[in-house]
């Protein structure tokens, strides 16, 4: 564990907290993409299958990972519940039209071609990594459709992007300190994912400089 990874994970937790805070305080999920949340649910549930096989108390790191994995899975499920049940009437279904089945299919094909080992777990893991790298797209697409972006929604995306950026630093750090060399899959997809966020950052910072509300082109 290094400071970059810990910082990244904490930003990830903050982003989830912001998301739930936005929904709970405004009693609305307007501007949020249910499709992105569903993709994250798929990502977490295909990546964290090792929860069933790893002893949480094996080491401090597995304990930490277990807690975080359960947190991500449960908060993701709760967010979907809020959007689909409790605040369903505020959900912007008309604009949230990104076709996620194509993303899922593409991630599945890529995972079948590129994986670290030919096992079900490794292929599902690769699938989750591919899918995570594009999971934010429906959310960005929705923001583009509706134009103006609420502050808290942009903070949510900003935190997610920060989490990905810190993970890249984490990988550079581990490359040199632990000589981790075989993580090309996570590195490649993580970089693509970060670039998608960088595009959002650009407009976010632009709107900040002009002191205006964020508008995506």
């Amino acid at each position: 564990m290094n400071i970059f990874r810990l910082g990244g994970d904490m930003l990830h937790v903050v982003s989830i907290f912001l998301l739930l805070l936005k929904i709970q305080t405004s009693h609305s999920c307007a501007g949020l993409s249910l499709k992105t949340q569903i993709l994250y649910m798929v990502v977490f549930s295909t990546r964290y299958l090792d929860l069933f096989f790893t002893k949480p108390w094996h080491s401090a790191l597995t304990f930490y990972n277990t807690i975080m994995k359960i947190l991500f899975l449960s908060s993701s499920a709760y967010t979907i519940y809020l959007m689909q049940k409790r605040y369903k009437h505020t959900y912007d279904k008309v604009h949230d039209t990104f076709r996620i089945q194509y993303l899922i299919a593409a991630a599945a094909v890529l995972a079948l071609i590129f994986h670290l080992r030919l096992t079900v777990f490794e292929i599902l893991w690769a699938f989750s990594v591919f899918l995570e790298s594009v999971a934010i797209l429906p959310q960005l697409f929705l923001l583009q459709e509706t134009g103006e972006v609420e502050n808290i929604t942009s903070h949510y995306i900003f935190c997610l992007g920060g989490y990905r950026t810190l993970y890249i630093f984490n990988w550079v750090w581990r490359y040199f300190t632990e000589h981790r060399r075989n993580q090309w899959l996570a590195w490649g997809c993580g970089t693509v994912q970060t670039l998608i966020y960088a595009d959002f950052f650009y407009y976010y910072i632009l709107s900040r400089k002009q002191g205006k509300k964020l508008r995506l082109p």
């Binding site: 990874r5 994970d9 990830h12 299958l49 090792d50 096989f53 790893t54 094996h58 790191l61 597995t62 990972n65 975080m68 994995k69 991500f72 670290l116 080992r117 777990f121 490794e122 893991w125 993970y167 984490n170 981790r180 075989n182 993580q183 996570a186």
Partner: peptide, 10 residues
């Protein structure tokens, strides 16, 4: 499974 492949990140 996780440790074997070195997936120790989230």
């Amino acid at each position: 499974v996780a440790a074997e492949s070195g997936h120790d990140e989230l």
